[in-house]
Each structure stands twice: as C-alpha cells, then as structure tokens.
Amino acid sequence: MTTHDDQGSTAHSPAILTVAGLSAHINGQQVVEQVDLEVPATGVTALLGRNGVGKTSTIKAIMGLIERSGTVTLAGQETEGLPTYKVARLGVGYVPEDREVFAGLTVAENLKIAERAGGGHHYDLVYDLFPELYERADQAAGTLSGGQQQMVALARALLNDNKVLLVDEPTKGLAPRLVSDVTAALAKAAELVPVLLVEQNLTVVRDVAQGAVVLSGGRTVHTGGALALLRDPETTQRYLGVSTGGAANPKEADA
C-alpha cells in the first residue's frame, strides 16, 4: 500500500493529456459543463463521480466522438477540431464503456482492425496478458463472456504504441474474480502507458490509481491523490455517494 504513495508523487511529472474548460453536447443537450484535468505521463489517474455526472461524456469528448468546446492537449498538441480517427492516431487508446467489441468479427479480427499503421503491434504483450485471447482467436467476439470481451477491448488499446489510454468502467458488470484479473491487467498496462480510468469500483481505484479527479454536475470539483481522496470520508460521501471508512464495496454500476 505504501508504494502507492510513492507512485503518487509521479503526479508531479509533466502531463501527457491536459483538458481545460471542456464542455460537450449530445443532441444539443449539455452533458459536460466545465471539466479541467491533467493526466501525468505515468500511472493511473482515476476519473470519479456519481452516475450521470459526465465521466463517460468527458472521455467521448476527448476522443472527439461528441460535439465539444474547450482545449484538449495531447503531448503538447492541441486536438481542437480533429476528427476522432486523427485523435486516435495521435496515440490515444480508447476502451469504451460496455466494451464495444465488434460482435460479428472474430477475436483475431478485432485485434487486427485495431492495428494502426506506422508503429509496432504488441501481440506478445497482449497475448502475455490475456492468453485466452490467443486460444479463442477464431471465435466470434459476440459469443465471448463479458470478461473476455473486456480483455479484447483492453487488448485493442494495448496493441499499439499509445501515449495515453482512456479506459471507461472496465470492471462494470464483471464477477469479482474477473474484476481482479482486469485490475491486474490495468496495473500492468499502466507500467507502460499512462491511463485515464473511469471507475465506480473504489477498490479497483485504490489498487491501481495514483491521481484522482472528481466530477459533479459536469464540472471538476476535486483534484488530488487517489488515496488521499478515498481516506476523506466527507468528500467521498458528498461526491461519490459512498461512505468509505475503510474498504469500498465492489459495486455494480449502471452507467
């Protein structure tokens, strides 16, 4: 546990992803009002908040999947007005909420389609982390279990040389054993590439995250260390709606 505090100090390293004054709309309705956050060049930064405060929308806005304004800077480059595919090509790996694997494509095809030109493809790493995917290469992804689909989704993001991963609720709806598998994979991934993680399960956050950003009503309301936040019962109660005297319960979240 103490190692986390040490890693927490990495938050001082220069940010790889900076979001400032972000707002976003879906069908003319404002879903993100004023989000500011920084993702340091190493480790996991957790994006927290109750359901419907705009966490997923923030991730989608960074990817350019929904209409947005404000600045999003990736490794010093402003991504304003870039179409989604160009944002991805700058080196952003996206693991969406609900996994969004291509159900009709095989596992191998799901990985192959994720291969980006102009860089290595780390099949060794992916199959090392998720040996099951190698065994099930020819199976249609739609027939996989939720946990296996999550592995495909993570593998798609880990396959390329990315500058940052955006991972949206990877443990949502998974059985406890699978939650720890995914958590382990996330921790491993975070050694290679910085991660911005949306997560409702505070145990997972405690295990992998160093920094934490808390949203409420589409706005950033708290930024700091993850552990410090989780140790602060008042803030967690107010913004996350859970009392965290000690361990948080693994919680089934629904969007």
């Binding site: 989604t84 595919y85 991805a88 969004e100 291509f102 095809e109 389609i113």
Partner: peptide, 14 residues
C-alpha cells in the same frame, strides 16, 4: 463489417 456494427468505435481505433 465492423463499421456496420459500430461506426464510431471504428473511428476511435484510428
């Protein structure tokens, strides 16, 4: 084939 299923995810893969 992937785009017929989910166009925005295809774009999000670059």
């Amino acid at each position: 084939r992937a785009g017929v299923e989910n166009r925005s995810m295809v774009m999000a893969l670059g």
